[in-house]
Amino acid sequence: MTSDDLLVRRADKKDIEEIFGLTREFALSFRPQRSAFDAAYPRLLENPDALLLVVTVGGVVRGYLLGFVHLTLFANGHVAWVEEAMTQHGFRRRGLGRALLEEFETWARSRDAGYIALATRRAPEFYQALEYESAGTYYRKVLKTDRPA
């Protein structure tokens, strides 16, 4: 794979099938439901505070990143949050994740975000190589019962 094969861009309507396939590979805590995905997808594309990126290899979507910028009180303005970041199995360790995060960082800076945060238990070496640091513990409380058994 050459760098010419790899392209990061904003997702658009035609990427819906490939991104849905990746969400099914990504999701461990929830099983993506097609109807909910189809309802959320166009809203995310239109949301000015959201950025949905894809990375393609040879024109095929092999990864995506969904992130947001929002206002805070404690950080004196905007912060950015990576909600989902996924590269397809078999295409990892080829620079796709790095390319997605670097594009998101550029967007977050353009939105005057003070920092970027994300929650993950996977790939700490990857995030540390990109100068992300561990900054706390992530807690959650599941409010929906549509999780897999």
Rank of each mutant, 00 (worst) to 15 (best):
R31F: 04
H89R: 04
V69W: 03
L96C: 15
V60S: 12
L52C: 08
M86V: 14
A119V: 10
R62I: 08
F26A: 02
N76H: 10
Y132P: 04
F74M: 07
Y132H: 04
V60N: 11
L66E: 06
R43W: 02
R94F: 08
A99M: 13
M86A: 03
R121N: 13
A135V: 09
R92N: 09
R34A: 06
A99D: 08
E17W: 00
L7G: 00
A40G: 02
F68N: 08
R92D: 02
P48V: 09
R109A: 10
G77N: 04
V142M: 12
A40W: 06
L65W: 07
R140V: 11
F37I: 11
D4E: 15
R111D: 06
R98W: 03
G58H: 12
S3Q: 14
T2L: 10
E125N: 12
R122C: 01
T145P: 05
L118E: 09
L71D: 05
L7A: 15
Y138H: 13
P42E: 05
V54W: 00
D4R: 12
S29H: 14
R111W: 04
V8W: 14
Y127W: 13
T137K: 02
I116A: 05
Y127G: 06
R94V: 05
H70Y: 14
A108S: 13
K14P: 00
T120L: 14
A99W: 11
A85K: 00
E105Q: 13
